[in-house]
Write a protein that binds this DNA or RNA. Structure first.
Lengths: 89, 89
DNA sequence: AAAATATATTGAAATTTTTAAATGTATAAA
DNA sequence: TTTATACATTTAAAAATTTCAATATATTTT
């Protein structure tokens, strides 16, 4: 993993709303209802959408549509590599 | 460790220049000669100073002056807590 | 196929971050 | 104690990020 990706992942983790979204995902078995997330975070729907996109683009989470809603899962490989690289910076 | 500090540390790690500074510190046993760092990163001296400050403020590194220059050391407690919190987000 | 529901994208404003010139402060050397 | 050297701070401009209204797209229901 290159330094550039370490930077990108750290950036994805550097916003409290995105951290809360990650927590919400985990608690909800990866299921995310956008409207519920809006209430929870007190953000407009496009903002939620934008934050989720950043998480996906960083590679930290995978996205797949189920019916009308989305499900997400941690990309454990990316996650573990990130930790490892930080430890041995 | 609160979510706010996770955010702050991630933010400190979310700039490639700061990551390079961290690497440079490690390679140099924590010793930093600012002018050398300027050359390495192709940044002006105040920028280096600013980036180092962000790292110190995040709690990731400790700063202590030796003679005219500065030495730094990783704050392992903060570092480890950060990792742990991320793992169990 | 039309209406309803859920998320994505675009565009623009507000905020934050990054950068460096100018200047200040502290230490070391002459 | 003057001069040189090294890092810090202030200030201001440039760049990037965050936010949301408006709009678009996709899916489900009727």
């Amino acid at each position: 993993m290159e330094l550039k990706q370490i930077e990108k992942i750290s950036k994805a983790l550097s916003d409290i709303n995105r951290l809360k979204i990650l927590q919400y995902m985990q608690k909800n078995q990866g299921k995310v209802e956008c409207t519920h997330a809006c209430d929870l975070l007190d953000l407009a729907q496009p903002s939620i959408s934008h934050h989720i996109k950043k998480l996906v683009e960083s590679g930290l989470i995978n996205q797949h549509k189920i019916g009308r809603n989305y499900h997400y899962s941690l990309n454990h490989e990316v996650w573990d590599n990130y930790m490892l690289r930080l430890k041995n910076l």
